[in-house]
Design a protein around this nucleic acid. Structure first.
Lengths: 231, 231
DNA sequence: ACATACAAACTAGTATACAAGTATTGACAA
DNA sequence: TTGTCAATACTTGTATACTAGTTTGTATGT
């Protein structure tokens, strides 16, 4: 059978399931709180429950699902504490990366940053929002590469993906994009100038844009958040 | 059967296995590169392979083992890149936590820090090295609590545990302890004084003590490190 | 109508059996 | 002695069957 997505022979069945569910959850096609069962997924993929089980364990470690033994498994809801933590971690890592970037930026690095900003501007005027989102990742990756701390991007990517899932619930994303581009320009300028403190300040300002967006989302989507009483 | 460690009814079999292996690996009783098989562990615990499999997935997500499909599973070796990343992450988080701590430290916080240092001094003179190690965690946890960023300690704990496993291979740990205590005193003083920059500087100096230790360990224990050529 | 209890239908956890790939070892030939 | 190849003994991956706990719905008694 193998109804869906049997791509290369390289990827195992478990990987297929993980990637598929990861995408469904990250894009909010599977909403927080949605219950999913091993048998259900197993049947969809035409496999037994064991590979699904392994996939669930992986998704659990990625903080995308919550397994309640003998009861049910559900898509993880958002939590204010997790969001706070994620924001703190990302701010700390981003600040350190920016410092390194400002201290190590050469002409090639400057060109790389300018290219990212230009491409993002282009994507915006062409209303290519998918590319716009991807280029956002590229910009922050470029910062990490310039700072000679490529591993920093791994952390940033993880945390950014979390908040991106959350931000799908937000409105008027399009209106905020010019501001984001301006932020990137400021960051790039400071990094190219070798001004670490200015780069960090610009980076922190950039991150703070999300705060009110997230606060609004939380108010309007309480059903997708865990009760902060117990957890 | 259930030969070993069937403690409370609360913990599941999987948790038992995870905790057990985690301890064995963290303390280096299971050396990096040691091969362990699902069947082997299953027999030891008197259970089938499935719970062991689940436990392996968990340990894999904790970066403690490496599962090579159809080949073998082994205790994860150290890698220079992973160590670099861990150091970077911890430095970034610790710096941010220290800044927050310096800005939020009240008299209660100051007392807490002093108590940590005093207890650690006591543990040292009493040659109670287990307590000494635990109190090291307590000190950094206190910093995070004072800074109102308790989640920061979760990251620090994770990264510290990684490097602690590595540092078991090091020599003359006892001789370094007075220096660590002095470092903690400096950090505590800066935090209590509300001097964020001084606190960060002291914290970074504290972290840098590990660098030469780790370099020496790497030279003397190449067998426990992955070949940096491929990975 | 309502409450309680019991039974049926979920859920994930575990055990066993088999499949598929890899490494090792030994025999055999050059 | 050395190289090649095949059989064998591993490894993890997958499928099926069964266990145990939870929820839910329904029937029954008040």
């Amino acid at each position: 059978m193998k109804s869906t997505s049997m791509g290369g022979d390289r990827r195992s069945v478990v990987d297929d399931i993980v990637i598929h569910l990861q995408r469904e959850i990250s894009t909010l096609r599977l909403l927080p709180g949605t219950r999913i069962s091993e048998s259900e997924v197993a049947e969809i993929f035409g496999v037994s429950r064991q590979p699904v089980r392994d996939a669930f364990r992986k998704l659990e470690s990625l903080d995308l699902i919550l397994v309640r033994p003998k009861k049910a498994t559900e898509v993880k809801k958002f939590s204010a504490r997790a969001i706070e933590k994620s924001r703190f971690v990302r701010a700390a890592i981003e600040a350190a990366a920016l410092r390194n970037a400002a201290e190590n930026c050469d002409s090639a690095g400057g060109f790389q940053l300018d290219a990212c900003v230009a491409l993002q501007q282009k994507a915006f005027v062409e209303r290519d929002f998918v590319s716009f989102a991807n280029l956002d990742y590229d910009f922050h990756m470029a910062i990490c590469e310039i700072g000679r701390v490529p591993y920093a991007f791994e952390v940033i990517k993880t945390e950014k993906e979390r908040v991106d899932r959350l931000c799908i619930l937000g409105l008027s994303k399009e209106e905020r994009m010019p501001q984001l581009i301006e932020d990137h320009k400021d960051i790039a300028a400071a990094v190219k100038a070798g001004d670490a403190e200015a780069a960090v300040a610009a980076g922190m300002k950039h991150l703070s844009r999300l705060d009110e967006t997230i606060a609004a989302i939380r108010k309007n989507n309480a059903a997708y958040f865990v009760d902060e009483a117990n957890s």
